[in-house]
Simulated scan of single mutants.
Amino acid sequence: MKTLRIHYLQHVPFEGLGCIADWASVKGHSLSATKFYENTNLPKLADFDWLIVMGGPMGVYDEMKFDWLPAEKEFIRDAIQAGKTVIGICLGAQLIASSLGAKVYPNAEKEIGWYPVFSTEYGMNKNLLSGNLDPFPVFHWHGDTFDLPSGALRLASSEACLNQAFIYNHKVIGLQFHFEVTENSLHQMITFCGEELVIDRYVQSAETILGYVQFINEVNNRMFYLLDFMEGGKDV
């Protein structure tokens, strides 16, 4: 298998690659990063094979607060047009959707905690999410959602949010939820964004969130499955 050069975009210190870094290490793939909270230097398209876009508490429309957002969206769009494999998680999925011309906006409900997602018929047929147990609980932390980009196919939904996962042009994946989450990253998100944990229909308390750490191994395995699938270059 070819050694991949994976570049990732990180927006805040407490939302890093999580278990994706473990996968890349085991596979022998190289990692490089643009950490926007430190610098805004972006690589040339020729310098990487995959682009992974991580989460963060900001919105794709917060360009007045984060002046690097327009350049980031243009970079994502250029990577997609260049035929790179692009994977977005939470904010990353929203940035991909926005880069493809879809609208991103506040969801009717915030969704924070462990809630099930349901594979669509297409998602189950392709088994992209390793959905042999469906529905399955995943970790969410988002207040925004997005319209499905033109040409994209929906892979999963939840009760609170229609567009939970999509694939575009065989090589671009958007996940609204966090397959990559680790116990450490759970604690980090609660520490830095805990003021959002106002218990509601789809918002759990910190205690409840941390009480379901047994799900982490399962969602990490699903992340590994998806990465293996994309690494294999299979037709999706």
Results as ranks from 00 to 15, higher is better:
residue 190 I to G: 03
residue 162 L to I: 14
residue 174 G to P: 06
residue 195 E to P: 12
residue 175 L to Q: 02
residue 198 V to F: 01
residue 187 H to S: 15
residue 200 D to A: 14
residue 155 L to T: 07
residue 185 S to E: 14
residue 195 E to N: 14
residue 191 T to M: 11
residue 154 R to P: 09
residue 192 F to E: 13
residue 200 D to K: 13
residue 187 H to F: 10
residue 182 T to M: 01
residue 199 I to F: 12
residue 163 N to W: 00
residue 184 N to Q: 15
residue 179 F to T: 10
residue 191 T to C: 11
residue 163 N to A: 01
residue 159 E to Q: 10
residue 174 G to E: 00
residue 162 L to F: 06
residue 154 R to K: 15
residue 196 E to C: 08
residue 181 V to R: 06
residue 168 Y to K: 00
residue 155 L to F: 00
residue 183 E to T: 14
residue 177 F to Y: 11
residue 174 G to S: 04
residue 178 H to Y: 05
residue 173 I to W: 00
residue 186 L to E: 03
residue 172 V to R: 02
residue 196 E to Y: 11
residue 190 I to S: 03
residue 154 R to H: 04
residue 197 L to P: 07
residue 201 R to Q: 15
residue 202 Y to V: 14
residue 172 V to Q: 06
residue 156 A to Q: 01
residue 198 V to G: 08
residue 179 F to V: 09
residue 168 Y to P: 06
residue 163 N to K: 00
residue 182 T to Y: 06
residue 191 T to Q: 12
residue 179 F to H: 08
residue 197 L to V: 08
residue 186 L to W: 05
residue 190 I to K: 02
residue 184 N to M: 14
residue 157 S to F: 04
residue 182 T to P: 07
residue 191 T to S: 13
residue 170 H to Q: 15
residue 199 I to P: 11
residue 198 V to D: 13
residue 197 L to D: 04
residue 169 N to M: 05
residue 188 Q to I: 11
residue 184 N to F: 15
residue 161 C to K: 06
residue 186 L to I: 14
residue 176 Q to A: 10
residue 193 C to F: 11
residue 193 C to G: 11
residue 156 A to C: 01
residue 182 T to H: 03
residue 184 N to G: 12
residue 179 F to I: 05
residue 160 A to T: 06
residue 166 F to P: 01
residue 165 A to R: 00
residue 190 I to C: 06
residue 193 C to E: 15
residue 196 E to F: 14
residue 159 E to C: 04
residue 171 K to N: 13
residue 161 C to V: 09
residue 170 H to L: 08
residue 179 F to C: 07
residue 173 I to R: 00
residue 195 E to H: 15
residue 171 K to Q: 10
residue 166 F to G: 05
residue 189 M to A: 10
residue 175 L to G: 09
residue 202 Y to F: 15
residue 179 F to W: 09
residue 183 E to P: 08
residue 173 I to T: 07
residue 166 F to E: 02
residue 194 G to P: 00
residue 164 Q to G: 03
residue 174 G to K: 03
residue 174 G to D: 02
residue 195 E to G: 06
residue 177 F to V: 03
residue 172 V to N: 05
residue 170 H to T: 14
residue 175 L to P: 08
residue 193 C to L: 12
residue 169 N to C: 11
residue 192 F to H: 15
residue 169 N to G: 09
residue 171 K to Y: 05
residue 181 V to M: 15
residue 168 Y to M: 06
residue 184 N to E: 15
residue 177 F to C: 04
residue 201 R to G: 07
residue 168 Y to C: 04
residue 156 A to N: 05
residue 192 F to M: 10
residue 167 I to W: 01
residue 163 N to P: 06
residue 155 L to Y: 00
residue 180 E to H: 01
residue 184 N to A: 15
residue 163 N to H: 10
residue 174 G to W: 08
residue 189 M to P: 11
residue 200 D to I: 10
residue 166 F to W: 08
residue 186 L to T: 11
residue 194 G to R: 02
residue 165 A to K: 02
